[in-house]
């Protein structure tokens, strides 16, 4: 059973303008999937559909089905789905509703009616998981952007969700904060088996961790597959090609012009090693 499955799912906030059009996707348990696409492609709506906010919160018209951990989202409530799906919205600061770090994490657990002793234990555990131990009494307003993002993550992780959905989580973070957030998400994915679904424009930052790319355009699913296949497709068909990382643009160009095939590049280091080898081979040939 996949962690997330959309079957011919279509949605319109205001009928008849479809924001998502006949989407069929399957996301396996424990995968790290990234939704790509230009603005207005339907990325946020897809995240909200997985969280159950579409159509429960926004209303609108929908067709098809969305299953999350086997639960049909339209037959379940948002609150029930919140036990399975943890969602981090794009405006993460507004998700922080209490005065201190400790209270913020406890808030989700209090909503679930968990006993105080267990809340204390879980708050401790989850803050350690996101690297915020020692910040328990700190005021939320005194945290940096990266720390706030981690706190939001901690508050959704406290309920032990099987799936994490994040809508452009690094849009307000500096490169250091972005790196450390994705490292943390990767650890949660690898060590705890949490399925990650993330919307991200900066493909280079997610390449080391992602195992599935979902490309959307104008509400339609263009391609769903491995990062390599989706990036090659984007370059070939010139769809959202401006988002392809510069090193991948170079790789695809060399492959096309020199008919040389490189292995997949997930990091700059991998690219440097392979390019170095290729240059050495060329130098040897020329010598």
């Amino acid at each position: 059973m996949p962690a997330i499955a959309l079957q011919n799912f279509s949605y319109a906030y205001n009928h008849p303008k479809k924001v998502l059009d006949n989407i069929t996707i399957s996301i396996e348990k424990g995968s790290f999937s990234v939704i790509l696409g230009p603005s207005g492609a339907g990325k946020t709506t897809l995240c909200l559909a997985v969280a159950g906010a579409v159509p429960h919160y926004f209303g609108g018209s929908s067709a098809g089905k969305v299953y999350v951990a086997g639960i049909h989202t339209q037959e379940s409530s948002m609150q029930q789905l919140a036990l399975t799906v943890g969602t981090v919205l794009q405006d993460y600061e507004t998700q922080l509703v209490t005065m201190t770090v400790e209270e913020e994490v406890a808030f989700s657990l209090e909503n679930m009616g968990i006993v105080p002793e267990e809340i204390t234990q879980r708050v401790e555990e989850v803050l350690a998981k996101v690297g915020l131990t020692g910040y328990e009494k700190q005021a939320v307003t005194d945290l940096s952007g990266g720390q706030k993002q981690r706190l939001v993550l901690a508050s959704v992780l406290a309920t032990n969700p099987k799936i994490l959905v994040l809508d452009e989580p690094t849009s307000a973070l500096d490169p250091e904060g972005t790196y450390s957030l994705y490292k943390l998400l990767s650890d949660l994915n690898q060590e705890h088996g949490i399925t990650i679904l993330v919307v991200e424009h900066d493909i280079a930052t997610v390449l080391p961790y992602a195992d599935q790319f979902i490309l959307l355009e104008n509400g339609q699913l263009i391609l769903n597959g491995t990062p390599e296949s989706v990036l090659s497709f984007m370059a070939k068909k010139q769809i959202f090609a401006e988002a392809i990382p510069p090193l991948w643009q170079l790789k695809l160009m060399i492959e096309e012009l020199a008919t040389r095939q490189f292995a997949s590049w997930h990091t700059e280091e991998e690219a440097i090693i392979q390019l170095g080898k290729a240059l050495d081979e060329e130098a040897r040939k020329n010598a």
Binding site: A53, T87, L89, V97, F107, N111
Partner: peptide
Amino acid sequence: LSLELRGFGSR
């Protein structure tokens, strides 16, 4: 929306 997503008022 975020309160709904965090199970606010569910119980």
